[in-house]
Amino acid sequence: MTLERRLYEIARKHCGNSPKWQIGLANLQTKTGSNAPAKRFRHNLREIIEKDETPFYRFELDDNDLVIVRPRTKPANEYAPTISLPNWSEEKAREIASALGWDYYVLRQNWLDFATAETLS
């Protein structure tokens, strides 16, 4: 599992839809299960922050090694208003994602992105 994916999972669990969640770098490293030296872990985290591609969450690292996680804000027109998923399809998608070891929320977002692009083209 990549560090970026593990950070996303931790952010989703602890930050959720809260405006902000923060944790010390050493504690975050423990939560990720990383056995890299602290200096290397900090470097890897800074690279992830610089790329800024983690879905749904943005990470920051301050000068005191405090990691701050914030949900990304979504523009109002990100989804077409007519796109909705019936309950049965969400339940089935959760089953499939779980069986394959995929993240349901990423799968759902990818599908909504695809459906939105198709409705706009």
Rank of each mutant, 00 (worst) to 15 (best):
R94D: 14
S34I: 05
T30F: 04
N17A: 02
E50I: 06
K20D: 03
D103Q: 15
A93T: 14
R40I: 10
A115P: 03
R94K: 15
E78M: 05
T73M: 04
R12Q: 02
N17D: 05
E95W: 08
L25Q: 07
E95P: 04
L112Q: 14
A99V: 00
D103F: 11
G101K: 06
N35T: 10
I48Q: 06
E118K: 15
E4N: 08
I96Y: 09
S121Q: 06
K74S: 07
W102L: 13
K31P: 02
K51W: 04
T82I: 03
Y57D: 01
R40M: 07
S98Q: 15
G101E: 10
D113I: 09
K20N: 09
W88P: 00
S18H: 13
Y79S: 12
G16H: 01
H14D: 05
E60A: 06
N44Y: 09
T116H: 06
L61Q: 02
I10M: 02
Q109H: 04
I48A: 00
W21P: 09
E53F: 11
G24W: 06
T30S: 06
G24R: 12
T32G: 11
E90N: 12
F114S: 06
I10G: 01
A80Q: 06
A11I: 01
E95D: 15
D113H: 13
L120I: 08
F41C: 05
P37S: 09
L25P: 05
I83H: 14
A117F: 00
C15E: 11
L7E: 07
L112F: 14
F56D: 13
Y104T: 01
I68E: 10
N27I: 00
L112P: 05
E91Y: 01
Q109I: 00
R94A: 09
N35E: 10
K74F: 08
V69I: 15
R42L: 00
T30R: 12
R72V: 01
K39G: 02
W111A: 11
Q109W: 03
I49C: 03
I83R: 14
W21Y: 15
L45W: 08
P86F: 02
P86N: 15
A11G: 00
V69L: 04
D52A: 15
N64Q: 15
E50R: 13
P75I: 00
S84P: 11
I68L: 12
L107Y: 10
E53L: 14
N64G: 04
N64S: 06
K74V: 10
L3R: 08
R72S: 01
D63K: 13
H14R: 11
N27A: 07
L3W: 07
N87A: 05
N110E: 11
W102Y: 12
R70K: 13
L107C: 07
I96E: 10
T73V: 05
E78C: 00
F114E: 07
P71D: 10
R40V: 11
V67I: 15
F56P: 01
A93C: 13
L28M: 10
T73H: 04
I96C: 08
E91S: 08
I96L: 14
E50A: 03
F114H: 06
E53G: 09
A11C: 03
